[in-house]
């Protein structure tokens, strides 16, 4: 595999291209002139230490933050030229800790995903019904449709929220730390579901994860960020190396190959003196 061919393929299949994106919160510069392409139909994982800007980048892709410089293209379109609902039909984002009334039912929540497809004069169509049925079936919350959100377990609740984003029928789905607050079994269940979003529903997924091993296992492409800049981009096998892990996460680690999935597996040893590069 030569690097040149991989890169050329990536550009052709890019669904999102980010060009020299900079973003400030007040006076604090969070993202510095960052460029990235996100491949179509793959899972791209943004990873890095706390405060590296990965969530901000994800939210900027969904235009929830206004950049101070640079551009983001969705296929050929600059996302800053799209209308609110038009963009909401292209890119969906699930926040890190979303909230809705406890007495809302699962079905009422999933219905919210249809908002960008509705107009005042056509509040609900057969297509909307089909979309929410598919979303609920695909995430396994069909039997929970009349349950109130307050009565669900953490894993069920997360599936209901993913069903809402799925019902939005966007080509691109952004998920911000979707397995936070979930126990091991539900982390696995949630990420298998994310995998199905790609395989079964053909969506492009952009994921923020801080667990490096989960990132390596589920990501097709990893993007390592540090201090608002991209340190490296590539396939997990190329990226999860002892040098890069020390550089990005500040941890000395042994990297082995996961004997089951063939993905790199990181065994953290101790804190490392972070090298400035």
């Amino acid at each position: 595999m030569t690097e040149a061919t991989t890169e050329a393929t990536a550009t052709r299949n890019a669904v999102i291209s980010i060009e020299e994106l900079s973003l400030d919160y007040g006076k604090v510069n969070v993202l510095h002139s960052l460029s990235l392409t996100i491949p179509r139909g793959k899972i791209t994982v943004l990873a890095g230490a706390n405060g590296c800007g990965k969530s901000t980048l994800l939210r900027a892709i969904r235009r929830l933050h206004k950049p101070s410089g640079g551009r983001i293209f969705l296929e050929e379109l600059n996302i800053h030229g799209l209308g609110e609902k038009a963009l909401a039909r292209k890119i969906g984002l699930l926040a890190q800790s979303p909230s809705a009334p406890e007495d809302m039912t699962v079905q009422e929540l999933v219905r919210l995903g249809r908002y960008p497809h509705q107009t005042l004069l056509q509040p609900w169509s057969a297509g909307d019904t089909e979309a929410i049925e598919q979303a609920m079936a695909g995430t396994g919350v069909g039997d929970l449709r009349d349950r109130r959100l307050g009565s669900l377990s953490g894993g069920q609740l997360q599936r209901a929220w993913i069903a809402m984003v799925l019902a939005q029928e966007t080509d691109i789905i952004c998920l911000d730390e979707p397995v936070n607050h979930l126990d091991l079994a539900h982390q696995l269940e949630c990420l298998e579901l994310v995998h199905r979003l790609k395989e079964q529903f053909g969506r492009t997924v952009v994921l923020v994860l801080h667990d490096l091993n989960l990132a390596a296992r589920y990501g097709d492409t990893l993007v390592f960020l540090r201090g608002g800049k991209i340190v490296a981009t590539g396939a997990p096998a190329d990226l999860v190396t002892e040098e890069l892990v020390a550089d990005v996460f500040g941890v000395q680690a042994r990297i082995i190959t996961d004997p089951v999935h063939g993905r790199p597996l990181c065994i953290p040893l101790r804190l490392s003196e972070r090298q400035s590069s």
Binding site: A88, A95, Y115, P116
Partner: peptide, 20 residues
């Protein structure tokens, strides 16, 4: 009514759905 439905969720979710 429709944007109010979406506004029952948090601001990020509502903005993601395209609610001004």
């Amino acid at each position: 009514a429709q944007p109010l439905d979406a506004l029952q969720a948090d601001d990020t979710t509502a903005a993601n759905l395209g609610v001004p």
